[in-house]
């Protein structure tokens, strides 16, 4: 894995002629998604765990940044992802491929759409690298002193926002959501996602996130 193959630096400008969607997508595959290798998946779609994890990571990133929704749209333009994610509604539809959402679309997420979400998540995560480090350090310090997260304002704010986003958007009737009914369990999930997001901010963060999404899913 070499430096010129990874990172957002490798994303180059390209023609975004919307009338030639397939051609633009293919071109995007050769530039923006360079280094993201297609795993051997049946039907070339993202499995269930991938859809859930991608959506939850974006949920955590939204909880980190109040302007995350606007930053996502800005990111779509900066990263030239419009050929894959056409609009805000399309992004909402892609995120609703998470089967645990209240308004799950029961649709599949193609590998190209999954890659676009990975690029977007890493873009947002890199903007929040310092904040994530601060919050993780604060969590370690609080745990070492046997203090709750309420003693750190920013950490408590992040956890509260995440709990709110999670409870309002996930379907509480699903069995997979049952373990996250308590605030403690949701806090643990939020901190776990924070650690995962930090690992995605590195030089090869995009490749690491993409490959980990298919951990145990390939033959």
């Amino acid at each position: 894995m070499r430096l010129n193959d990874m990172g957002l630096q490798s994303i180059s400008l390209m023609d975004t002629d919307k009338t030639e969607m397939q051609g633009a997508t293919a071109q995007m595959d050769s530039y923006a998604f360079a280094g993201l290798v297609d795993p051997e998946m049946p039907g070339q779609v993202c499995p269930r765990r991938t859809r859930i994890q991608l959506d939850w990571m974006l949920l955590a990133l939204e909880a980190l940044d109040l302007n995350a929704t606007e930053n996502i749209i800005v990111g779509l333009h900066e990263l030239q992802l419009q050929p894959v994610i056409k609009s805000r509604v399309h992004l909402w539809q892609l995120r609703n491929t998470n089967p645990l959402r209240r308004f799950s679309q029961r649709q599949s997420l193609s590998l190209t759409e999954g890659k676009a979400l990975v690029v977007l998540a890493c873009y947002l995560a890199r903007r929040q690298t310092s904040t994530i480090r601060q919050l993780l350090r604060a969590d370690e310090q609080l745990k070492s002193k046997n203090l709750s997260a309420e003693h750190h304002f920013r950490l408590a704010q992040y956890l509260e926002r995440f709990r709110g986003h999670f409870l309002s958007r996930m379907n509480a009737n699903r069995t997979a959501i049952a373990p996250y009914k308590s605030s403690e369990a949701l806090n643990d999930l939020a901190l776990s996602l924070l650690g995962q997001i930090l690992f995605c901010t590195g030089t090869a963060g995009m490749q690491r996130l993409w490959s980990s999404l298919f951990d145990g899913e390939v033959a």
Partner: peptide, 12 residues
């Protein structure tokens, strides 16, 4: 080289 690739079903 670092092999960044998904682990197989057998490994996990």
């Amino acid at each position: 080289q670092v092999a960044i690739q998904p682990r197989s079903r057998r490994d996990v």
